[in-house]
């Protein structure tokens, strides 16, 4: 029998199976916490930092990633406070400035409420979310690619930049990559990057009911777990 614990997210008491993360529990109950680096059913690494929530302990709140926070009895989580929204918007802004050339990233930035980008666009090919690495190690257990280097030299690479013998050409790393989702208007050239913002009308509904999943169609772009589970066709 599955043991369940009662936790409180945004004032709502939900009963989540023991051992799941706060993000899992919230998504199960239709509470939308934006997330990007998470691959459904695999262990989370907390790389993208988009799924931050406020965790209240003894009247003090601590901001942490909900995907690496496991549910505990009588936990109090606030997922949609002013502070969280501000930080989340800033993180999304940095991500979209790093790699604007993807519909998935543009969508997640819109979902987090980014209206303008204050940082210079870099137009790089990778935001180091680690989805490809976790699908390669977690689902297939082959470890053909991994993180190499440290700090600003960190990158995803095969050993010695050669094709790994372990690679089975399954292509899963490309399937989960947010950069593989091309923007609607085609790839942007260097110097022409912008915040897309075409889907902004869709967000009106989400603003009326903040924090709840509104089946916003954005999930298809950034592979929200609810789409992965096939809850909606």
């Amino acid at each position: 029998m599955i043991q369940r614990v009662a936790i409180k997210i945004d004032g709502m008491i939900i009963r989540a199976p023991k051992g799941t993360s706060v993000l899992d529990a919230a998504l199960d109950y239709g509470i939308c916490i934006p997330h990007l680096c998470r691959v459904p059913y695999l262990s989370d690494i907390g790389a993208c930092r988009l799924c931050i929530v406020e965790h209240v302990v003894n009247g003090r709140s601590k901001i942490t990633t909900s995907c690496t926070l496991l549910v505990k009895e009588d936990m109090v989580i606030l997922s949609n406070t002013e502070e969280v929204r501000k930080l989340r918007r800033n993180i999304a802004e940095l991500i979209v400035a790093e790699a604007p050339n993807s519909r998935a990233i543009q969508d997640v930035a819109l979902r987090c409420g980014v209206k303008e980008v204050r940082y210079p666009f870099r137009n790089s090919d990778c935001i180091l979310c680690g989805r490809c690495v976790s699908v390669c190690t977690g689902r297939f257990g082959v470890k053909a690619i991994g993180f190499v280097g440290r700090g600003n030299e960190r990158r995803v690479e095969t050993p010695f930049n050669m094709r790994s013998e372990l690679c089975r050409d399954c292509g899963a790393c490309i399937d989960v990559c947010p950069m593989a989702v091309v923007p609607c208007g085609g790839p942007m050239k260097t110097g022409e990057e912008r915040l897309c913002g075409n889907c902004e009308p869709k967000m009106a509904f989400a603003e009326q009911t903040p924090g709840f999943c509104v089946w916003c169609d954005l999930g298809e772009g950034f592979q929200c777990e609810r789409y992965a589970m096939g809850l909606r066709k």
Partner: peptide, 14 residues
């Protein structure tokens, strides 16, 4: 240990 992991560790530490 997978070669990727050896390479990641070796390239991580100064």
């Amino acid at each position: 240990v997978p070669l990727t992991e050896v390479y990641s560790v070796a390239s991580f530490y100064k």
